[in-house]
Each structure stands twice: as structure tokens, then as C-alpha cells.
Design a protein around this nucleic acid. Structure first.
Lengths: 341, 341
DNA sequence: CGGAAAATAGTTATCGATAACATATTGAGC
DNA sequence: GCTCAATATGTTATCGATAACTATTTTCCG
């Protein structure tokens, strides 16, 4: 409970004068510098402990012009896919004691702009953006920024800097191909119609494209509402689909959560999955593995995106300047389960 | 792509000399200080824009001894309950432009200790800990720390500082009472047996207590494995329960995710819910609302914990020192749905 | 044993914004 | 016109750690 500091805070020079050494030596002791006597170092660390010294990285950051954190924006941390990415990113960066400054854009580019302006003031060593949809001002800010910028979860046509992503369009193609191969022709897509969920929109576009590739018309496009869409929207979306396109025999959803909502609604309505309606999701969420029937889906390797991004950041921070920005393209996997025949 | 700064970075004194004013005036312009001429301020801001100036909060932080961020630890950011808390906490603090430094403890007190030591070096304005299980060293570190400490999601008997939480034990009692009232007597509890999930353990203890209150023995305690436990563990746990205690007529699970896993397994085994087995969860996750039948659960108001914590932090940062630490107790709600009769 | 390299420690100035104090200008009231 | 207060701006020192440099041992070799 005694929070108030009794005196001023303890600093390196206090330790130094207590031991009759210079502040510089104390600094060296703390950084595990090579050129310091092991015994001196031990004395310093033990005295520091005794005095309750806490290293002040604010001062260190200013002097070294290194802050030791990376700024990260995500549309929503509540999405299990994004949080898996953040987790692995965080874990990877922790190896070098780099911390994450996280900001939620709530799927709003304007909010992203505000947040990035704030984050830049803190001098992060790199900026990681989930998604590639930005305002013009954000792009301008970031292209002038002195630190590396990495866009993840997308393959932007005009990247700001580096990229770690995958093709949402191509991934959906795998689902369509699978459904068509098993004889389904009257396919619908649920979700992805809003401007503020570019990845959803890309999946939807991929659906349209893939259908065209099979000579089929992609007329069955069902809206699910504004991002973030979840199970609730999946359930209501399934109803809407049945009203608009009652003869649909295969449904691809913008995410597993939506697919599960649709599946649960099918149970309630007595629609048999996959017999009456095949359903596929996207993202390989845990629920797709557990529900009955389990969901065919696309594993986008959300965690891997995070760890690869961490590796890229660490490489960029150590390495020599690069001629061209990096672009790492990951390959999502099609996971076949019983919700499709 | 032109990342390399052409010259040195632009600082306040550059703007100052470009306009023939002092650096102090520039500083005042940026902070919206009262005592500055509106026209001068406009000139400064426009010149700053022109030069591409980015405010350096590192320097500001050092001088003012205010960093503008709050450190937060969570067991796992992938848990939708915790991420809801973080989201609302973040949203609340953003009003005052305070950012969050987030760290995942992975349910490991040792890891928490390491992370907190790191976080303290950054001089956060407050420290928010999810959970009340800490190592002795963590407690020592934090009780000496100069900034407010808030433990959330629990009601610790010996809090380090302030608290925003609820009683896990009492919440489970509501579930037990409901099941008993509807005639079930052979109740089981799934999960919460591990040392590293104190909230799970408290729920389990609450189950035992509540059963005793009804004169019933709580012998049906089924382990679910190490935290974090999810749907997968729910499914396997249900199997285990059916082996160990085949006559169970009501199952309370440590979370909705576990409950859903159990429910899905019941579907597969032909066990009717709630006729053959009543199931309840904990946490009011979205899935419990959507699955069939929807799950009876406890809404712990995860988001509210976050926003209340934000309010508390803001109050502590502005207000005068307090005589005693704050303790805010929230009341979870029992939500009755069809998975219990 | 002489001398060069290695090991260890100290000095001084600095990172960039800003608190605290000092100064200059304007205006109001009598 | 004069004083006092309000307004607007400038000066200097400082937050705490550390880069860059210098100074002093110690070690090791031919």
C-alpha cells in the first residue's frame, strides 16, 4: 500500500556513489558489457538489488534512439485469428526483449490513421499493420517514416513497405473447386460485402472469380452485415440465404465463425449438413474442428504469420539496409472435413 | 521505400529556428498551452507539417516522468473473455491518449514475474494484472513499485493494491442452485483442477461448496487438462466423465468453450441435452448463444471489467492519494438457456 | 625486462522536450 | 501618465542513461 516513494527514485549514479565507482561502470554492469570485471559487476548488481533500483528505459531509449518496441495494429483483437498472430509475433519478439504496442482499429481506416499518428510519436522500431487498406494520409505518414513498415494478412498491390501475407482470393478458389468437384453447382457465399472488411471482400471476390473459372455464375451473394461478423450473423445469414436462394446446395462463409452460425441454424431448421447443404468456412478456428459435422475450411496459419513477421522484424533490425522491400507469401491449406461431401 | 532519413530527424528546435522563435514556444504550441498566441501556434503547426516533424514522446516522457502507458498482463490474449476486457480497457484509456503495453503470461506465474520486471523498466503509469496468483518476488516488486497496481478478474484475499473483480465461487453457486432446483442431484464439474488456472480452481471450489450447501457430495470432479482448456478438452472431458461417472445428470463446465466441446460430443454420442444431461458453461461466450441447445452460463461482464478498470486508472492518475486501496466488486449474471431444464 | 596489447574504469557531452524562472509587451483602471 | 496585472515569449538547466573518448592498470610475449 505504501506507494509513495520515500525519497527520490534510485538511479544509476546512486549505486555508483554508494560503491565508489562511476555511473558509466554501473551502466556497463547492467548491459552485460564485455569490458567489465565480473566481480565489480556482481557488486553493482547486488547493491542495485539492495537499493531497489529499477532500470529506467525511458532515459536509455532517448540516448540510444532505440525504444525496444514494435507497434502493431489489428482490426480487432477479439478475433481469434488475429490474436493468434499477435501472440506469435509477441512471442517471437520477446526473444530480443522487444515489446508490442498494440492498437485496435475496429475495422476503421480513420481510426487506424489516428492510432498510427499516436504510435509514431513513440518511435517504435517497426510498424506492423494488419491489412492493406489505409487512408491516403496514413500512407503518406508511413512512407516517410524512418522505421520499417510491414503489412500482414494481405498481399497488397501497392505495398507501403514489406509484406507477410497470403492470397485470400486464391484460398477461396480451393473451396469452390472442392465443392464443384463433388457435384455442387448452386453455390452461395455469405459475408464480405462491406467496404470495411477488405479480407472478407477479397474472399468474396475470389468466390466470384472461381465460379467464373468453372463457367458458373456467382449470383448467390448473401450479405452478413458490418464487420466484425460472427456466429450471430452466420445464423441470420443462413435464414436470409434460404429466403433469397432456397435451392442453394453449397455455402461458403467468410469465416468459420459465420459458418458455424449457419450450421447451428441448419440444425434448428432441420436442414441436413452436408446432405442438403454443404458448408465451408475460412480460418480454421477451433470450433470448426469440434462442431458436428466438423467444418471444411482454409487454414491460413495465423500463428505462422505472426512468427514469420517477428523473424522479419528481427532481421530488418539487425541486417544491412535492403535494396528492395521483402514480400513473404504464405500458402494457406485446404482442410477437408465432413461438412462438405 | 525511401526509408533512410536524408538528414537528421526534425526536432522542435528546427521548427523554432525556421520561424525565429524559441524551442519552448514550439513546445507550448504542441501541447495546446493556454499562454500562446493563436496565430503563432498556427504558424508553428503548419511549419511542423511542412517539415514533416514527428513529436518525440521519448524525450517528453523522460523530462516529465510520465510515459502515457499502462502495463497489462493477461494469461492469454486468445481467450475471448480476456480480449474483451483488454479491448474495453484500451478503449477507455484512449480517451486520455494512454496506450497499453500488453503481455501474455501464458498462465505461468514465473513468466509473469519476468514480464513484470520488464514492464516496470518502462515506467508505466499503472499496472493491471489479470488474476491474483503471483510469485513472492512479483509481489515484492509490485508492492515497492511507485505506480498503482490493479488486480482484475478475481477478489484476492491479500490484494497488492486495487481490485476490480468478481467472485468466481459465488457465481458457480448460482449454476448449482439452478440445477438442483430443477431436480438434478448427480452433478459433475469439468475442469479447474490445475494449479495454473486459479479462476478455474475457484469455480471448481465454488461447485464443491455449493453442493455441500445442498447437502450433496461433490465427488464428480472431472479433470480437463492444463490451461488453457478449450473445446477440444471439453469433448474429451465429456468422454472421461461418462466413463468415470456414467449416471451424471448435470454437468457444469469451467467455461463455455469447454461446455460447447462437451455438448458437441453429446451430439455425437446421442446423449440428449438437456433431457439426459443438463450442461452449463461459464463466461457467456458468443458460442453459448448460438449453439443448439444454447448454453446456460454466467455472464461475468468481461468488457465491463475492462471499462471499470480504465475508469479506475484514470481516477487514480488524476486524483489525490487515497487512504485505502479501491476494491470494486462486480456481480456476474446467471443466464438461463435451454441446455438446462 | 621492455613494450604493446588487452582489460578495466573514468570524463564529458549528449539524446529532445520541458519545468522553472525571467523578460518583454500590451492593456486596463485611476 | 503611471502602476499593476495579464499575456506572450525567451533562457537555462534538467530528466537518467550512455556514446565516444581518455586514462590507468594488468597481462603476456619475445
Amino acid at each position: 500500500m505504501k506507494k509513495a516513494a520515500q525519497g527520490g527514485k534510485v538511479k544509476m549514479s546512486d549505486i555508483a556513489s554508494a560503491l565508489g565507482v562511476s555511473a558509466m561502470t554501473v551502466s556497463r554492469a547492467f548491459r552485460g558489457d564485455a569490458g567489465i570485471n565480473a566481480q565489480t559487476r556482481a557488486r553493482i548488481l547486488s547493491k542495485a538489488e539492495e537499493l531497489g533500483y529499477v532500470f529506467d528505459s525511458t532515459a536509455s531509449n532517448l540516448r540510444q534512439n532505440r525504444t525496444g518496441f514494435v507497434a502493431v495494429t489489428v482490426p480487432s483483437i477479439e478475433n481469434a485469428n488475429f490474436s493468434a498472430t499477435v501472440r506469435e509475433l509477441s512471442r517471437g519478439l520477446l526473444k530480443r526483449n522487444i515489446q508490442i504496442l498494440l492498437a485496435n482499429t475496429e475495422y476503421d481506416p480513420e481510426e487506424e490513421e489516428r492510432l498510427i499518428a499516436q504510435l509514431l510519436r513513440r518511435n517504435p522500431e517497426a510498424i506492423v499493420l494488419t491489412g492493406a487498406q489505409h487512408t491516403a494520409k496514413t500512407r503518406a505518414l508511413l512512407s516517410k517514416a524512418p522505421m520499417p513498415v510491414i503489412e500482414i494478412w494481405d498481399l497488397p498491390a501497392k505495398p507501403i513497405g514489406h509484406v507477410v501475407g497470403f492470397s485470400n482470393e486464391a484460398s477461396v478458389r480451393g473451396l469452390v473447386d472442392h465443392m464443384v468437384k463433388s457435384g455442387r453447382r448452386r453455390l452461395a457465399f455469405l459475408g464480405g460485402e462491406t467496404a470495411h472488411d477488405p479480407r472478407g471482400a477479397q474472399r468474396r471476390a475470389g468466390f466470384v472469380e472461381a465460379m467464373a473459372g468453372h463457367g458458373l455464375e456467382a449470383t448467390r451473394l448473401v450479405p452478413a452485415g458490418a464487420a466484425p461478423v460472427g456466429m450471430t450473423e452466420g445464423a441470420s445469414g443462413l435464414e436470409l440465404m434460404r429466403t433469397l436462394f432456397p435451392d442453394t446446395d453449397g455455402l461458403i462463409c467468410v469465416s468459420d465463425l459465420v459458418a458455424f452460425g449457419a450450421l447451428a441454424q441448419c440444425h434448428r431448421l432441420g436442414v441436413k449438413v452436408p446432405e442438403d447443404l454443404a458448408i465451408a468456412g475460412f480460418g480454421n478456428y477451433e470450433i470448426g474442428r469440434i462442431c458436428e459435422p466438423p467444418l471444411t475450411t482454409i487454414d491460413v496459419h495465423a500463428g505462422l504469420i505472426g512468427s514469420r513477421t517477428a523473424d522479419m522484424v528481427l532481421g530488418l533490425l539487425e541486417g544491412t539496409p535492403l535494396a528492395a522491400p521483402l514480400r513473404q507469401v504464405l500458402q494457406p491449406d485446404l482442410i477437408l472435413r465432413r461438412s462438405t461431401p
